[in-house]
Every structure is written in structure tokens, then in C-alpha cells.
């Protein structure tokens, strides 16, 4: 399956979607406040649709955002809902929500998504110095 690799900028996150069975890696990291959120996230949602047709044995998505605006929060939910579908179709799915250890708001945002979607979540704190 094709690989998505988008470099991060000051207003868009770095995105890696690589479902290579040897060494799969899926991550969205950095900042998200794109001018046009739909245009930015559409290819990611499309990729997830394609991926869902033939998913790996285990799907792990890392979300490691330091900031996202409210418009992005809606699109992040759309991504998580795709994973929910995958999980409900009896696939092994895990979302790893990374947050800076001093950022309660980002930790809480992860907890809220965990409440909203039916997908196993793992909260991972990291320190920035």
C-alpha cells in the first residue's frame, strides 16, 4: 500500500502513514491549524479508508500533537472514528495519545477522545526540556 509522508510546518502536522507489514508506522505529530482543515485531512481519511480494506494484524496510530485548533479537533475525531470502525470490525487497534507531561489540557483532550470513541487508547506522557 502507498505511503503517506507529509513534512510538518508551523501550521500543519507531520504525518506518516506507512502500513508496510515489516515495519509499520502511523503517526500525526506537531501542530495543526491549517488554513483549510478539510483539504489537509482529506487525503489522510482517504488513506484510512483504503487501509481498512486490508488492514494489518495490529493497527497502532500515534498522535503526538503539541497544539491543534478546534477545527482540527473535529477532523481528528473523524480519523478516530475510522479507527473505531476498524476496531468494531474485529481488528486489533490502538491509539497512542502522546502528551507533554506538563500539559494537562492535552492530556485531557486525549481522555475526551477516549470517552467519545470506542477504540483502545493508551496515554503516553513525554517530557520536553
Amino acid at each position: 500500500m502507498r505511503i503517506i509522508k507529509i513534512e510538518g510546518t508551523d501550521d500543519t502536522p507531520q504525518v506518516t502513514l506507512d502500513a508496510n507489514p515489516e515495519n509499520p508506522f502511523m503517526e500525526i505529530s506537531g501542530r495543526s491549524l491549517p488554513e483549510d482543515v478539510v483539504a489537509f485531512y482529506d487525503p489522510i481519511l482517504e488513506w484510512l479508508d483504503e487501509y481498512a480494506e486490508n488492514p494489518l494484524e495490529k493497527t497502532v496510530l500515534n498522535i503526538k500533537l503539541e497544539y491543534f485548533n478546534t477545527a482540527s479537533s473535529k477532523l481528528l475525531l473523524d480519523i478516530l472514528l475510522k479507527l473505531e470502525d476498524l476496531s468494531e470490525a474485529d481488528n486489533d487497534v490502538l491509539v497512542r495519545w502522546h502528551y507533554p507531561d506538563d500539559d494537562e489540557d492535552m492530556e485531557e483532550a486525549g481522555e475526551e477522545y477516549e470517552d467519545i470513541v470506542e477504540v483502545p487508547f493508551e496515554q503516553v506522557s513525554y517530557s520536553i526540556d
Binding site: 483549510d36 482543515v37 477545527a71 479537533s73 473535529k74 477532523l75 475525531l77 467519545i116
Partner: peptide, 12 residues
């Protein structure tokens, strides 16, 4: 966030 639709300008 669950029920709302994005506006065409991407407002949530």
C-alpha cells in the same frame, strides 16, 4: 464535536 458538521470554511 460528535454531532456538529464543519462549515464550508472549516469552522467546527
Amino acid at each position: 464535536i460528535k454531532s456538529g458538521k464543519l462549515s464550508e470554511k472549516g469552522g467546527a
